[in-house]
Simulated scan of single mutants.
Amino acid sequence: MKPITLALAGVLGFATPLAWAGNADLDAKFKELVDRSFKTTGIAQKERMIQLDFQKLCSALEAGEKVDPKKIEELRQAQEQTIRWPSDGKFLGNWKEGEKIAQSGRGLTWTDNPDTVNGGGCYNCHQMDQKELSYGNIGPSLSGYGKLRGNSEEVLKYAWRQIWNSKSFNLCSSMPRFGDAGILTEQQIKDVMGYLFDPESPVNKNHK
Results as ranks from 00 to 15, higher is better:
S59C: 15
K100M: 05
N113F: 12
R76Y: 03
G119C: 00
A159F: 00
M128S: 11
Q127L: 07
P202R: 06
P199A: 00
S173Y: 03
M128P: 04
T111A: 14
R76L: 08
T5I: 15
I138T: 12
A78E: 14
W20D: 12
T82N: 14
T82W: 02
L75V: 13
K46F: 04
E132H: 09
K131N: 10
N23V: 06
F38W: 10
Q51I: 11
E132I: 03
R76I: 08
P114Q: 04
A15M: 00
D27H: 15
T16M: 06
W164L: 08
G107W: 03
R149Q: 11
C58V: 10
V155F: 07
T82E: 12
A19C: 02
S37Y: 03
E32V: 10
L12N: 09
T111G: 09
K96W: 01
G42C: 10
D25W: 05
E200A: 14
M128G: 10
G150E: 02
G10L: 12
K66H: 06
A44G: 03
V192D: 04
Q127Y: 01
L61T: 01
G121M: 08
T185Y: 02
V117G: 04
E74F: 12
V203T: 06
L33N: 08
N94T: 11
S168H: 05
I83M: 11
K147R: 11
K208Y: 01
N206H: 15
W95C: 11
M49S: 11
C125T: 08
L108M: 05
L12A: 08
G119E: 02
C122R: 04
E154H: 00
A102S: 15
A24N: 12
F38S: 13
N23L: 02
Q81R: 15
W164G: 09
A28F: 09
I4H: 10
G22S: 09
I163R: 01
F30R: 14
A19K: 13
G107D: 04
K167G: 07
G182E: 04
K100N: 07
S141I: 06
S37L: 10
L75Q: 10
A28E: 14
E153G: 11
L108Q: 05
R84N: 09
A159P: 03
N151A: 15
G10I: 04
G107A: 05
K147F: 03
G93A: 13
D115Q: 10
Q127D: 01
D198F: 00
N113K: 13
Q81E: 15
L171E: 00
C125F: 05
V67R: 08
N113D: 14
Q81T: 10
I4G: 02
Y135H: 10
L171S: 10
N113E: 12
K56I: 00
A181D: 08
N23G: 07
L196K: 02
P69T: 06
I4Q: 13
K157P: 05
V155L: 09
P69D: 04
L8A: 13
F91S: 09
D129M: 06
S134D: 12
P69R: 04
G144W: 01
P69Y: 04
G179S: 01
A21L: 09
A60G: 07
S141E: 03
